[in-house]
């Protein structure tokens, strides 16, 4: 239903929006929800507000059109590499590219099926192979799919604390889609929730400078001395 590339090899100059979909079946409703959220967020970012003609308004982060690069990561395609990373401690090139994309994003849409009261094991394993400091300040929209709406709170008792622990910034609205949501055109609140969450994420992505940052993997902790801080000198 969308024209998004699953593997976008390189980004251009726009804001970097990364989508992680942990659905296992193909086609999957998790991917369907991910695509709806991506489309809604992209629309919000690309639309010009009333004062878009003013160059200064871009800096206010409110209303100028924002270019956006989208990268969609299907964890199913990386499932073996994720397991291998857990066993060997390093990521194969394709997985490393996905980790780098998430790490350097201006915004993340994370969508998982709810399995046995929580995010799927594959989703958690992917998070586990990312450095625990790599997602600091990352704006995140959390979303999930499940058979019934009874599990919708898993987003708030499992997904949200996971990203809070990682010091990511999770937008207030999370989106849960039960099977029934896909069949009720009139009266369904799913499109409203998607729109509200997308607006919240877009506002944070507009002002994020994460993708422009340069990390230093060899930065020494402040105060580090190669001879120690005691009587050793």
């Amino acid at each position: 239903m969308t024209g998004f590339d699953v593997e976008t090899p390189s980004f251009s100059a726009g804001k970097k929006l990364v989508v992680v979909s942990a659905g296992l079946s193909q086609p999957s409703s998790t991917r369907l929800l991910a695509d709806r959220l991506t489309e809604a967020t992209t629309d919000r970012l690309r639309e010009s507000g009333p004062s878009a003609e003013s160059a200064g308004s871009a800096r206010s982060g409110e209303s100028a059109a924002t270019e956006v690069d989208i990268r969609i990561i299907e964890l199913r395609d990386l499932a073996h590499d994720i397991t291998n990373n857990l066993l060997t401690g390093f990521a194969a090139p394709k997985l490393q590219a996905a980790i780098d994309a998430v790490t350097n994003a201006d915004g993340l849409i994370a969508v998982t099926p709810i399995f046995t009261t929580s995010y799927s094991g594959l989703f958690k394993s992917f998070i586990d192979v990312i450095d625990t400091t790599a997602l600091t300040d990352l704006p995140v929209l959390i979303a999930a799919t499940g058979g019934t709406e009874r599990h919708s709170l898993a987003l708030d008792y499992a997904m949200r604390p996971l990203f809070t622990y990682l010091h990511a910034v999770v937008v207030p609205t999370s989106v849960y889609a039960a099977s029934a949501d896909w069949g009720s055109a009139e009266g369904s609140t799913l499109p409203d929730r998607i729109g509200r969450a997308a607006g919240e994420l877009a506002a944070l992505v507009r002002v994020s400078d994460r993708s422009g940052r340069v990390g230093d993997p060899f930065a020494l902790p402040s105060g580090f001395s190669p001879v120690g801080g005691f009587g050793a000198q």
Partner: peptide
């Protein structure tokens, strides 16, 4: 750990990269 590379450099000692379990790009850095 860059701290250990820093320590080896400070003393003018040798630095050994195990190299066998991870990709070479990591150890090159």
């Amino acid at each position: 750990s860059p701290e250990i590379a820093e320590q080896a450099a400070y003393y003018g000692d040798g630095f050994f990269a195990n190299n066998i379990f991870w990709p070479k790009e990591h150890y090159m850095q």
